[in-house]
Design a protein around this nucleic acid. Structure first.
Lengths: 227, 227
DNA sequence: CAGACCGGTCACAGTTTGGTTACAAATAGA
DNA sequence: TCTATTTGTAACCAAACTGTGACCGGTCTG
């Protein structure tokens, strides 16, 4: 994990981008900028920012579309910037999986605090160890134990588990899992690959694989790891 | 040991300081700067850097004096920067206890590698002995024994073992091992080199090389030393 | 209620990885 | 310069891993 969190700011108003970038950089973030939706997607692809701040009303590929694709294809959290008094925008954004939203005009101070809060919530991936009852995942030692006994996982099983565990509480779509655990581009791979690996993981980890305690299925969406 | 090692760079030429600082910062170090010997001593006092890089020809309190006092008053390693073709400077510096020296002009890349090497040596120095059942690794004496009988290791075998042992419990990827034990850049070397050396190490150390007790394979990732 | 969809399960074949070995090249020391 | 030792390389093999396709039961929808 990078020392200095990276924020992608995408807005078609350059002065708005500039204001936000300055505030975030002053607050210790590394800032990447994009001025339309397409560029935002390219920057996500290229830089893998820690968080994406999107204005919803960008020309061409709009903020909602970017949000949808980022949520589908990555695990990067998204903060949406909406125009004042557009509650449908808010609902739509949250349905698309945005982590938070802010309504223009807003104070940059509050924006920084919101970004920090989102990153704190998603910063679980920095944690060295995750424990959930008898299950213990030690990222540094690359060790998984159940009741203090080592569980032998294959490389892919381990990656899948750590990917899920690093996003505890969040649903990861099958596209996101393919990208993160399989390191595939989204147009490769299939749900079947994930199904089987999830099955294998559950066989190794779950007290009762038929009634999973750690790895939960979200039908029609993907899977979620819960503590 | 701090997460990001701190380097103090002391040189009366600001552009040289800048060049070195940029290289080190890019390589992941936190850089503190000083432009004369007195300032260097103050920065040492204030920040307790992990390593000090000193130009010998600074005005006032020169690099040798700083080196002498740092060596006398702290355990911080020192790397001296000397002018080309001044072997007396080198000898004097080493007599004062400098850990290494480099002669201007030099590549900043090499400087980074030298700094990394010094830090590695001084980090390992903190652990004197590692014992795991019949195996004993004495870093100070540069001795490895099994059941109190010396094991003859080649230089590379020794480096590989100490590298693993210094990171007991953690998985070291083959890239990390190439970098640390072979001191290669990651785009050189191959897994095959490591495989064979691991095999050779196991032949010498493991009671049953086919079922290793000390050096464990983490398939798809690398190797781990366990107590 | 029937059909479509979804997720779980299973077995097998193809692929990948790590261990082993022998030999050549490189290195170190006399 | 020569010899012994160390290291890297390439080939081979067994074990492990992964994906695929088929099948099944549960859920959802028209």
């Amino acid at each position: 994990m990078k020392e200095q969190p990276t924020v992608l700011v995408a807005d078609d108003e350059p002065q708005m981008v500039g204001v936000i970038a300055y505030a975030l950089q002053t607050a210790g973030f590394q800032v990447i900028m994009a001025y339309d939706g397409l560029q935002a997607l390219q920057q996500v692809e290229e830089h893998h920012p820690d968080i994406v701040i999107l204005d919803v009303t960008m020309p061409g590929v709009d903020g909602f579309e970017v949000c949808r694709r980022v949520r589908n294809e990555t695990t990067i959290p998204v903060l949406l910037l909406t125009v004042k008094d557009e509650p449908e925008d808010v609902i739509k954004g949250l349905e698309l999986g945005a982590d938070d939203y802010m309504t223009k005009p807003f104070s940059t101070r509050e924006l920084v605090l919101r970004v920090q809060a989102i990153l704190r919530r998603t910063r679980i991936r920095q944690v060295k160890v995750i424990e959930s009852g008898p299950l213990r995942i030690d990222f540094e030692r690359h060790r998984v134990t159940l009741h203090d006994l080592p569980v032998e996982l294959t490389p892919l099983e381990y990656r899948l588990l750590t990917c899920l565990a690093a996003n505890t509480g969040r649903v990861l779509t099958w596209q996101a899992l393919l990208k993160e655990a399989w390191q595939l581009d989204v147009w490769q791979g299939s749900k079947e690959m994930i199904k089987v690996q999830i099955h294998r993981l559950r066989q190794k980890l779950e007290p009762n694989p038929a009634q999973p305690r750690f790895i939960h299925t979200v039908r029609g969406v993907g899977y979620r790891f819960d503590l």
